[in-house]
């Protein structure tokens, strides 16, 4: 799946994550800001990466501003943002 436009999903409310995706040339660039970065930074990045891979997104910039979202929320928000930014609307 190819990211062709900038897109956002999620909110900055507690327990949510705000995700921004934009097109990129080579590879997945994932940036994570989080209030629980020390405790969950690696898991947040992994959730975002797996979601992108599952959708077959190879090139994108993903930036996450996390307010303590659990894994399934991160996956849902990343998926929504990627699909919104992709060629085909789902």
């Amino acid at each position: 799946m190819k990211i062709v436009r900038e897109a956002i999903a999620g909110t900055l409310e507690s327990n949510d994550v705000f995700v921004r995706v934009s097109p990129a040339d080579k590879g997945l660039n994932i940036q994570v800001q989080s209030i629980v970065l020390g405790q969950f930074g690696a898991q947040i990045e992994q959730a975002a990466r797996q979601t992108a891979q599952m959708l077959g997104v190879q090139n994108a910039v993903l930036s996450l501003d996390d307010r303590g979202a659990i894994d399934c929320t991160i996956r849902a928000r990343v998926e929504t943002a990627l699909l919104r930014g992709a060629e085909v609307q789902a």
């Binding site: 629980v36 020390g38 405790q39 969950f40 930074g41 690696a42 898991q43 659990i70 894994d71």
Partner: peptide, 9 residues
């Protein structure tokens, strides 16, 4: 089970 296991430093 809900949050995952936090890494504590």
């Amino acid at each position: 089970r809900i949050t995952g296991t936090p890494h504590t430093a």
